[in-house]
Simulated scan of single mutants.
Amino acid sequence: MQLHQGTVAVAGATLHYETCGQGPPLLLIQGGISEAGATRQFAGELARRHQVISYDRRGLSRSPASSEVPVSMRRHADDASAVLAELTARPAVVIGASIGALIGLHLAVDHPGQVDTLIAHEPPMTAVVADAEREAGLDAVAELARSDVFAAIGHMASLAGPQPTPQDGARPEEPVGDVREHLTWFFAHDFPAVRSAALDADAVRTVPETTRIVPTGGADNPHRWERRCAAELATALDRDLVELSGGHNGFVSHPWATAAEVTRLLREDRRSTSADAE
């Protein structure tokens, strides 16, 4: 798979991006501390039909950022908008997981003309599903992060429960940057930005109908809080929650199954759009 790489300057940061494939644009917004290439197996399948775009979020790996510029979900959405504007004038399919899904929702709200379809996989939305027990657990994560970021991410993972068994041959790409530096940035900037994000279903309902929003959840962990957020958002938008293979990290753990499901979903959405137009 041939990759093309570049950078785009944004407020307080320089974003590294990479593209592969040809066709209609499709932006992947990574979750957690994942770099542009973390979902490369998933991207490789989608690149059969799309120009797949991914990038390192500000502050991670090859996207150096100033700590003087506040990080928020809206800032991240503006970054995603800038990457799209650099590479295409067409509305794109946008696929985001976890924090990437939350960024995608902000992108659809703030820049709807750039988004054709958004697949929002398990966005962490406190304004949609409030959970005091989970918030207490995340308070403990924040406290641990002050002294040991690896202990903090371990405790955060324990709050989510067991992970599904991956597909045979599925593996994440080895990180390019330093994991400790990634985690330090994440807990200092992205983690509090997600927790303080106030985006709710009412705001998402303001997105024009020309931008289709599809909440998705992992089939293998139905009780996970982020999946509950996706389910509640789907209900609020009067849509069915679409289940994808694996769990919260299915784009990495089940790349071929989820790519096939996403491709089918996009085809169904296009047929639905054509029928609506008639």
Rank of each mutant, 00 (worst) to 15 (best):
V71N: 10
A260G: 06
E86D: 13
E86M: 14
G154Y: 06
A234H: 04
P208D: 00
A85E: 12
V115E: 04
G21I: 07
L84W: 10
A197V: 11
I119E: 06
V115D: 02
N221R: 15
R74S: 14
W225P: 08
D131L: 03
T206M: 11
I33E: 09
G104T: 04
A82V: 02
A43D: 06
G218W: 08
A108P: 01
V128W: 05
T211H: 02
V71D: 08
L144F: 11
G104C: 09
W185Q: 10
H223E: 15
P91A: 03
P70V: 07
V176A: 12
A193M: 12
G100E: 10
Q5H: 10
A142L: 07
V10Q: 04
V194I: 15
V128Q: 02
P255Q: 08
E268G: 12
A219K: 03
S67L: 10
P124T: 07
L107Y: 00
A277D: 12
P162A: 00
S61G: 04
P162L: 03
Q22G: 14
R239N: 11
Q41G: 05
L199W: 09
S158P: 10
S147L: 07
S253P: 13
P164W: 14
V115M: 04
M125A: 14
V115G: 08
I119W: 05
G31S: 03
I213E: 02
G37D: 06
H50D: 06
D200A: 12
L199E: 04
A145W: 09
G218Q: 07
T206W: 11
H121F: 12
A108M: 01
G161V: 06
H76I: 12
F186Q: 07
V115C: 05
M73A: 09
L107C: 00
M73H: 09
F251W: 13
P124D: 11
T206V: 09
R40D: 14
L28P: 05
A234I: 00
H248Q: 05
L105S: 04
P70L: 04
A92H: 00
R146Q: 12
S245F: 11
L46F: 05
F150T: 02
V52A: 00
P123H: 07
A108Q: 03
P208V: 01
A130L: 03
V176F: 10
E174R: 15
H121C: 13
A43Q: 11
I99C: 10
T210Q: 13
E143V: 09
E143P: 10
L233H: 08
A160K: 15
E226I: 06
E35V: 03
R228C: 09
A127D: 07
A120W: 03
I103H: 06
F186P: 09
A234Q: 06
S272T: 11
V94L: 00
S196F: 14
L237P: 06
A236D: 05
R40L: 15
G59W: 01
F42I: 07
L183W: 00
R205D: 00
A11N: 07
S67Y: 09
P70S: 01
P172D: 10
A11P: 08
A38R: 15
H4V: 13
R48G: 14
A160F: 13
A13N: 04
G169Y: 14
I103T: 12
L84C: 09
E86N: 05
G247Y: 07
Q41C: 08
V52Y: 01
V179R: 01
A65T: 01
A236N: 01
A219M: 08
A132S: 05
E261K: 03
A219N: 04
G59A: 04
S147F: 10
D190Y: 06
V262W: 02
S272P: 07
G218I: 02
